[in-house]
Amino acid sequence: MEHYNMNLTVKVWRQKNSKDKGGFQSYPVKDISSEMSFLEMIDVLNEQLIRDGEDPIAFDHDCREGICGQCSMYINGKPHGAWKANTTCQLHMRAFKDGETVTIEPWRAGAFPVIKDLMVDRSAFDRIIQAGGYISVNTGNAVDGNALPINKDKADASFAAAMCIGCGACVAACKNSSAMLFLSAKVAHLALLPQGEPERKSRVLNMVAQMDKEGFGACTNTGACEATCPKEISISNIARLNQEYLVASLTADK
């Protein structure tokens, strides 16, 4: 790979806390190597801000290898930036050119209030899981792991849904701020497995009810969620969710 250095203007959302109105601020950054990760570029900018006596930009991040789901920036109009199937922490500066202006915002959704700058509160996702995103099995009751053979294709499909990292990019990308891709991934993960069968109906009904309570919007099938998902969770999970929901609504014991 050829490496190069660049100078950029970073236009970033600054908001002191949840009550503050917030607004954009622009900062120049110099000598950024194309080998750096996007967050390392923010690190450089923050070091600069601290030296200049200013408040550094607050942003969520942790593993920096695309799996914890904590990073959450809306970069040049796209959650996690322009690369496909990618998280912000894995975006690298070779995606940018010298002289560019990079615009960074937090996730925008009523159910994800801003805490500070680029950090948002995604605890609504945890509450959706609390509503039924699990199999009710206490520790120590399990039978032998191989006592229950599972069709490989189903197991693989379940795994593909279980890869969701709960970052919330699907909500941020959706014009309705719908959480349907997130929710459907969990419903599909568990509904595809025989272990998930006993609670199949109550799970989907309770989780959908919680999602509505949290203030996420409705799904209008634009597909923006699937296109932006860093783990390429398929929108077909939403079709499965709708089917599960319909069957459960019609047949569940009340």
Binding site: Y134, I135, V137, A142, L148, D156, F159, H189, Q195, G196
Partner: peptide
């Protein structure tokens, strides 16, 4: 066994 029962794929 426990993880399989929890639905770990």
């Amino acid at each position: 066994d426990q993880c399989v029962a929890q639905g770990v794929p």
